[in-house]
Design a protein around this nucleic acid. Structure first.
Lengths: 102, 102
DNA sequence: AAAACATATTGACAATCTTATATATGACGC
DNA sequence: GCGTCATATATAAGATTGTCAATATGTTTT
């Protein structure tokens, strides 16, 4: 995965309000109006955060009439975890001596 | 973990240059001058990114004379993984019916 | 069709972040 | 001690992001 996409995925997790939203969704699907009751932002701000979460594929929205129900995307979360794993696993093969030795 | 700290941890992963830096450190400890050769920013900018990475405890710095050697912190990475796990695991106990049903 | 409702989009502004230049700190070699 | 080297910090500019008010879109109800 390229750096740009990786950054976009983890942007989902680097705002306090988005973290609160994700935490709320752990107990299951919730519509925007319910989320709005629980976090202290205006409706357009919530909508903005939901877009970022959906673009990162951490959350999915399901439209049902005038409501939008949001839930955590297990697939997207798995991708994020895999990405973090790949990003941080030491590469023993190519491990080299540290530079700038005395 | 509180939302603020969680956000700070994932900020490590939401900038393209920081992701490049982390990728470089997968092959082992590297000093700042080596990292500077490989990513296209000035020395103070690199220093700034290293501070964010260290504050998030994803990377640790080891001073040796005038050099600073950076490496991925396995402990910090584990904490980030645990954090992501905890944040995104569905809470089956408290799972509730979606609101706003027709 | 009109009114009411839920959500999305637009536009503006403030806050935060990335970046660079200039400067400071601290270590090493003479 | 003085100059040099590696890195950090201060400061400021520019870019991006978070936020809200206003408005638009699309759905349901009357």
């Amino acid at each position: 995965m390229d750096e740009k996409r990786t950054a976009a995925i983890f942007k989902a997790f680097c705002d306090e309000n988005r973290i609160r939203i994700i935490k709320l969704l752990r107990s299951g699907e919730k519509c925007a109006c319910k989320l709005l009751e629980e976090i202290n932002v205006t409706q357009p701000t919530l909508s903005h955060h939901m877009k970022i979460l959906c673009d990162a594929e951490i959350v999915v929205g399901r439209k049902e009439g005038k409501w939008t129900h949001y839930s955590i995307s297990e697939k997207g979360v798995k991708r994020a975890k895999d990405c973090l794993e790949q990003l941080t696993t030491l590469d023993v093969e190519y491990k080299n001596k540290s530079c700038c030795e005395k």
